[in-house]
Structure formats: structure tokens, C-alpha cells
């Protein structure tokens, strides 16, 4: 069987287009020695890779079948056998946009996972805030799960504040894009369902949740949803601050000496 030498390969993009805020995909590899491109899928061995010319690669990118990076990256060390320099495990691409990381409280994007360095590159077309990197499969899964955890944490923190339902749904959506592990995906689905209008919850369960978790039972799920709501509703802080009464104060009273008022610590450290 032929082997693929990491020194002859550079990663120039990934398969597909980034239609959501984050995700993973197979890398597009370019062979330095002859400029041929392929979708780097090692699941059926190196011999089954289908190589394409530069012209074909360009047409795939123009048709948004492939997404190109501004600058190529190398195959990560973790996927290469050090003694032979051959690519032995499947590298994967992970992409994200700045908004997702901001919402997940994960700014800046990670520069390493365990001992793997991550070199992020912007995408050639599309959203300027979108970046991708190539890493080993386990690293990609872990990175996505970490973002999902950040998103779920934000969801839980915001849930009790009666925010806009659309805002919550957006965070749950992001979390579903990111979450890879079964446990996190289930948590994300639970929260996604919690953002639905009551009459749409069952349909959401049937169409999405039950498909991915066939053993899930609607009644149990509903109970869990109620418990979650109860827990999250208890979490937020309630105070005895009175509502504003515009009629009870004058502008002058409101402003007197205000420049010398010390700020209140209203956000926990």
C-alpha cells in the first residue's frame, strides 16, 4: 500500500462550505510535488483517494463545494508517524466564526489542544470573521465540545432573566452546531426544546431528538424539561428594586453630583 508523506502535503481548505457558525469537515490536501488536490479521507486507505487538478480544485471552490484557506497549513504532528513521516491518522478541519466564540465566552480561539499546536487561518471567501484549523480528530471533537460547554453555560445563565426567546434559541442552535459528545448534544437538545413555543415542543422532539436518541421517551423528556426550567428559573438573582416611576423625580434631582458617584459592583467577579 502506498503511503502519504506529510512533507509532500499541505492542507489548503476543507470539504463543503461553512453554512453554520462552527463545525468540522474533511481537509482538502494539496500534493506539493505535482499540485494535485484531494479530499483527504483516509477511512478507506490512501489508494482510494481521488486526486484533482488545480483547475478542478478552483472550480470546486468557486462552486462552494470546497472552502479554501487564505494560507495553507501543515498536517498536524499528531497525525504523522514520526519515524517514517507518513500520515497515519485522519486529520480533520474545524471552523468557527468570531460571534460563536464571543457568545460561548471562548475569546480568544484556542492555540493548542494538549500538545497539538493549532494554526488558524481565515477563509478565502465569505465571512471575514471565520477561521479554520487542521488538527487530529480527537482534538477537533474536544475543541467543539469545549465551545458547546461555554454556550450551554451562557444559555443557563441567561435563561432565568427572561431574555428574548430568539436570543436563547440562537444560543441553543450554536450549542447544537458545536456539541459532539452524546451527553452534550442531549443537553443542547433539551435547552433547544426549552426555547420552543409549547405547541412546537412535541414536534421538535419527534423530528430531531427522537431521531438522534431513539430510546428517548416523550414523557420523560417533558418531565426533564420541566425540571430544567424550574432549576434555571431559580438560579437568577431577584432583588427588591422598585420599578422606575418617572413622575416621582426631576432631571435635576437625578443628575445632582452624579459625576462623583462611585460605580456599583453589579456583576460578580
Amino acid at each position: 500500500m502506498n503511503s502519504l508523506k506529510a512533507s509532500d502535503i499541505e492542507i489548503v481548505g476543507f470539504n463543503g462550505a461553512p453554512l453554520v457558525e462552527c463545525g468540522r469537515s474533511l481537509p482538502i490536501a494539496k500534493r506539493k510535488s505535482d499540485g494535485q488536490h484531494c479530499v483527504l479521507d483516509l477511512s478507506r486507505g490512501v489508494d482510494t483517494l481521488v486526486w484533482h487538478s488545480q483547475e478542478e480544485a478552483t472550480s470546486f471552490a468557486e462552486a462552494r463545494q470546497w472552502t479554501e484557506l487564505v494560507r495553507s497549513v501543515s498536517i498536524p504532528n499528531a497525525c504523522v508517524e514520526s519515524s517514517t513521516g507518513s500520515v497515519i491518522t485522519q486529520p480533520m478541519m474545524v471552523f468557527e466564526n468570531e460571534t460563536l466564540l464571543d457568545v460561548a465566552n471562548r475569546v480568544p480561539r484556542p492555540d493548542h489542544h494538549d500538545l497539538e499546536y493549532l494554526i488558524w487561518q481565515p477563509l478565502k471567501v465569505g465571512d471575514s470573521g471565520c477561521f479554520a484549523t487542521c488538527a487530529s480528530g480527537p482534538a477537533v471533537e474536544a475543541i467543539l465540545d469545549d465551545w458547546a460547554q461555554g454556550l450551554l453555560k451562557r444559555f443557563d445563565a441567561m435563561f432565568g432573566q427572561n431574555p428574548d426567546r430568539a436570543d436563547l434559541k440562537r444560543i441553543a442552535d450554536f450549542a447544537l452546531c458545536a456539541a459532539r459528545s452524546r451527553e452534550l448534544r442531549r443537553k443542547a437538545y433539551l435547552r433547544y426544546a426549552a426555547t420552543q413555543e409549547p405547541d412546537r415542543m412535541k414536534r421538535t422532539f419527534d423530528r430531531f431528538i427522537h431521531t438522534e436518541f431513539p430510546k428517548e421517551n416523550w414523557d420523560c423528556f417533558l418531565n426533564e424539561l420541566k425540571t430544567l426550567r424550574d432549576i434555571l428559573k431559580v438560579l437568577p438573582i431577584t432583588t427588591t428594586v422598585t420599578q422606575v416611576d418617572p413622575s416621582g423625580c426631576s432631571t435635576r434631582q437625578s443628575l445632582r453630583d452624579i459625576a462623583n458617584d462611585k460605580p456599583l459592583n453589579l456583576v460578580a467577579k
Partner: peptide, 22 residues
């Protein structure tokens, strides 16, 4: 809206602060 619900004794969870990018 948020200022009416928090105080120095019971401050806001920083995770619930709105994202900058919004």
C-alpha cells in the same frame, strides 16, 4: 431591565452578560 433585578449583594452572573458581537 437587568439593573432592576440585581444588587451589589446579589450581583449578576458574568456568563449572562450579553455578547459583545451582538
Amino acid at each position: 431591565q437587568t439593573a432592576q433585578r440585581v444588587s451589589e449583594e446579589a450581583p449578576l452572573d458574568p456568563n449572562s452578560l450579553p455578547p459583545l458581537s451582538d
